[in-house]
Amino acid sequence: MSALLRVEALSVAFGKTEVLDGVSFDIAPGEVLGIVGESGSGKSMTALAMMGLLPPGGRIASGRIVFEDVEVSRLPERELAKMRGARMAMIFQEPMASLNPVLTVGEQIAEVLRHHRGMDRRSAHNEAVSLLKLVEVAAAERRVDEYPHQLSGGMRQRAMIAIALACRPRLLVADEPTTALDATVQAGILDLLRGLRQEFGMAVLLITHDLGVVADICERVVVMYAGRVAETGDAGAIFAEPGHPYTQALLAAIPRLEGPIGTLPAIAGVVPSPADFPPGCRFAPRCPHAIPACEAAAPVLRALAGGTQAACIRAEHAA
């Protein structure tokens, strides 16, 4: 089966500073892929590059992004705009800040329908109500004419999802969709995404720093660290036999309900900023298994016995 989206050796740079370095992964139609990593690992930048929404100054330095057999990384803005919101849609972390405060929720959904699907005002408005019902917003007929500040955080994110679903995209990119929400609301949003994905057969790229969310919904996982892919594999294998010391450390940092209460092992240090990425393996300075050879050359992804692929020369020693 050919991939819906292929990211091949993608590097993104701001000026001379590379924030993404040789990132590769793909997504099959209907698949849910999780990208995990701490803040600053390059997760969101990867998603923005896919959408052609890199912040000012950012550019794709090398590599390709191929979506539905079209190389989107080379498309002009006009062609990209036709694809965005129609074939590939995106939702963001802060549902309050991501909705326009001076336009009604209905208008923000309906304009997508009018623009991409050529609907007239009345049918776009009706379809907006149906979409709000689809994302399980109560009293959709009333909510459609309300403004974002009149909605709760969970409802705003549902409205964002309704906007994203308006044109039944093949791929939904969800950048930390539940991070800003309460735990119970989070579960509701994840349930909704899972259900919608089954209903429409759309692929979902879920970006999160929360491995619990990944375990909940993702089939495959890409672990990123400091602008590179650290490890990738099926969710089951990643959780059962993580090969990369960074993945292991992330998993160890998940709080568990069972067992004795103790201090939560945190990963010492922080993700370095792109301007001072270390040579060789970028995780080496924080890695308990690091040897001098780790800093000599950037490790490449290689298949491990556990079923995952990890960019670590010490994986066998770290297990």
Binding site: G85, S98, N100, H115
Partner: peptide
């Protein structure tokens, strides 16, 4: 710089709609 302008672009709205409707009204 606001997120909702990025949302408008993510929705595939043409540049003049993003500027003239989403940004200017605010």
């Amino acid at each position: 710089r606001q997120d909702y302008v990025r949302t408008a672009r993510a929705k595939g709205m043409p540049g003049w709609v993003v500027i003239g409707k989403h940004a200017l009204r605010n």
